[in-house]
Computed example of a mutant assay.
Amino acid sequence: MRILLADDHTLFRAGLKNLLSTVDEMQIVGEASTGEEAIEQASLLNPDIILMDIRMPGLNGIEATKKIRETLPHVHILILSMFQDDQSVFTAMKVGAKGYILKDANEDELLHAIRMIASGGAVFGSVIAARMMDYFAVSSRYEPNDPAYAELTAREREILILISKNATNSQIASELHLSSKTVANYVTNILNKLQVSDRQEAKRIALKWKLNDHV
Rank of each mutant, 00 (worst) to 15 (best):
R2T: 09
R2D: 15
R2S: 11
R2L: 12
I3Y: 08
L4F: 08
H9F: 09
F12T: 07
F12M: 08
A14C: 08
L19Y: 10
L20R: 08
T22L: 14
D24T: 11
M26S: 01
G30D: 07
G30P: 00
G30V: 03
E31H: 09
A32C: 04
A32I: 02
A32P: 13
T34R: 07
G35R: 01
G35W: 11
E36K: 15
E36S: 13
E36W: 12
E37W: 02
A38T: 05
L45G: 08
P47R: 01
D48P: 06
I49V: 15
I49S: 08
I49R: 11
I50N: 04
I50H: 11
P57H: 05
G61E: 04
I62N: 00
I62C: 06
E63S: 11
K66R: 13
K67Y: 15
K67R: 14
I68V: 07
H74S: 13
I77S: 07
S81T: 10
M82I: 13
M82S: 13
D86A: 10
Q87I: 14
T91K: 15
T91L: 14
V95R: 01
A97W: 10
K98F: 07
G99V: 00
I101N: 03
L102A: 02
K103T: 06
E107I: 00
E109V: 09
L111R: 00
H112I: 11
I114K: 08
R115W: 08
I117G: 07
S119F: 07
G120H: 10
G120A: 01
G121A: 05
A122K: 05
A122V: 02
A122G: 04
V123G: 03
F124R: 01
A130L: 10
R131N: 13
M133I: 14
R141L: 14
R141W: 11
Y142K: 07
E143F: 12
P144R: 03
A148L: 15
A150G: 06
E151M: 15
L152A: 00
T153L: 09
R157Q: 11
I159M: 06
I161M: 14
I161Q: 13
S164N: 07
S164R: 00
S164M: 03
K165Q: 15
N166S: 15
N169V: 11
S170C: 05
Q171P: 03
S174I: 12
E175V: 12
E175H: 13
E175S: 13
L178I: 06
L178E: 13
S180K: 14
V183P: 09
A184H: 08
V187A: 02
I190M: 02
I190S: 06
L191M: 09
L194F: 09
Q195F: 07
Q195T: 10
V196Y: 07
V196S: 07
S197C: 04
R199G: 03
R199D: 07
E201H: 03
E201M: 01
A202R: 06
A202P: 01
A202I: 06
I205C: 02
I205S: 02
A206H: 08
K208R: 15
W209D: 04
K210D: 15
L211H: 03
L211Y: 02
D213H: 05
H214R: 05
